[in-house]
Amino acid sequence: MNLAWLHSFRRVAETQSFSRAADSLFLTQPAVSQHVRQLERFFGHKLLTQTGRQLQLTDAGRKVYELACRLERDIADVREGLEHLESQARGLVTIASPPTPLALYLPRVLRHFWAVYPGVSVRTLSRVRDQVTTAVAHGVADIGLQTAPFLHPALVTRLLLKDRLVAVCAPTHPLAAQRAVAPETLRRVKVAQLPPGAESRTLVDDWFAARGVHLDDRLELSSLEEIRAAALHNLAVGFLSEGYVRADLAGGRLARLDLAGFDLVRWLYAIHRPDIGPVASDFVAVMTRLAAGIGPRSA
């Protein structure tokens, strides 16, 4: 059955005339008559009867007329809903995060999200941990990625995954083959780190400080990729997310330094306001679904 047949039939029923229906539809009268005949053949019933100069609906015709009206209403509702979805899909989602979650986690989320919302722009804001909560709470960002559950009365917090920091170096580094390397050994070793204020640097510095060790020989770099490159080229020991260097460790391009007692774990959380729009909500849903595939949720 063709929807055009129903549309023509409805206009004939409402105007009680093939010619007036044809004029309103910008069709020829024979075309409208053909639509009605095809509809009658489809249902196997006479739908119209001639009474004088006027056309009247048969009992079967009234049922088909009700069907035509209902279908056109439903189609109009669906079109309106799709237009609304399309308007939502042409938006912007802003994500605030420290550097590690942006580099480790976000690319895979974006691939899946853009498969559904190709027209949505995504903007990232690189922020230190304390600034992420502020950006989301004040509406500067729709979603924040946090490595600590900064509880805020106006924000929703969702646990995503576990992130472990590891010490890495080139396989040819003098410490690569050693077992249970003492923390104080790294006083005499060049260590690549992010600038002060970066969360991973703060965690590492605090861990060494608790053991009475100050890292004297630092190579201060501006990105995780620069730290990875420094380790790959045997320029320094680096402290990076295990997920960020998993492929390098598996492929033998980097070695995991056996640093005695070193076990720093962070949990990654998504935070957002309760009233974020449907597109941002879907972004959070994609993150939640993918979390288990990117890293373990438990030890």
Rank of each mutant, 00 (worst) to 15 (best):
T124Q: 08
T124C: 02
A154E: 04
H138Q: 12
D142L: 00
A154L: 10
I143T: 08
R179C: 00
L194S: 00
A115N: 14
K162C: 09
T157K: 15
E184Y: 15
V189A: 12
R127N: 05
V168A: 06
H173F: 13
L186N: 01
D142A: 02
P196K: 13
L159F: 14
V122K: 01
P118Q: 09
A148Q: 01
P153H: 10
P174V: 06
A170N: 04
D142T: 06
A182E: 11
T133P: 04
A135F: 07
G144N: 10
G197P: 07
V120M: 04
A141E: 06
R127Y: 00
R129W: 01
K190Q: 11
A135N: 07
D163S: 10
F150R: 13
Q193K: 08
R123S: 00
L175M: 11
H173M: 15
V156R: 06
V181K: 06
V136L: 06
V168K: 02
A137Q: 01
A137C: 10
Q178M: 13
P195E: 05
V191K: 02
V116W: 05
P196N: 13
L159A: 14
I143Q: 03
P171K: 10
P196Q: 14
V168E: 02
S126M: 01
Y117S: 14
R187K: 15
P174Y: 09
L151H: 01
A180K: 12
A137N: 07
T133N: 11
H173R: 08
A115K: 12
T172F: 04
A198T: 12
P183M: 09
L160R: 07
A192N: 10
K162T: 14
C169A: 15
V166Y: 06
P118Y: 09
V132A: 04
D130Q: 09
V140W: 08
T133L: 01
L161V: 15
P196W: 07
T157N: 11
Q178D: 08
L186A: 11
L125Y: 08
D130Y: 11
P183H: 03
A176F: 05
A176L: 10
K162A: 09
V128S: 12
V122N: 03
P153L: 13
L145W: 04
A154K: 07
L186V: 06
T185H: 11
A135S: 15
L151P: 00
H138F: 00
V189Y: 02
P183F: 08
R123V: 03
V122Y: 00
P174H: 03
A198D: 05
E199V: 07
A198M: 10
E184C: 06
Q131N: 12
S126F: 01
R164F: 06
V116P: 00
A180E: 13
E184L: 10
L159T: 15
K190I: 02
L161N: 14
A167I: 12
A180N: 11
A170P: 02
V116Q: 13
T157W: 13
L125S: 08
E199D: 13
E199G: 11
Q193G: 00
A141L: 09
E184H: 10
P118W: 02
H152T: 09
T157Y: 08
T124Y: 01
G144P: 05
R129Y: 05
T134R: 07
K190R: 13
D130A: 12
R179M: 03
L155P: 04
D142R: 00
V136I: 03
T134S: 12
H173Y: 10
A177K: 15
V189S: 07
R129F: 08
P153T: 02
V120F: 01
I143F: 05
P196A: 11
V132H: 00
L165V: 11
A180F: 11
R158D: 13
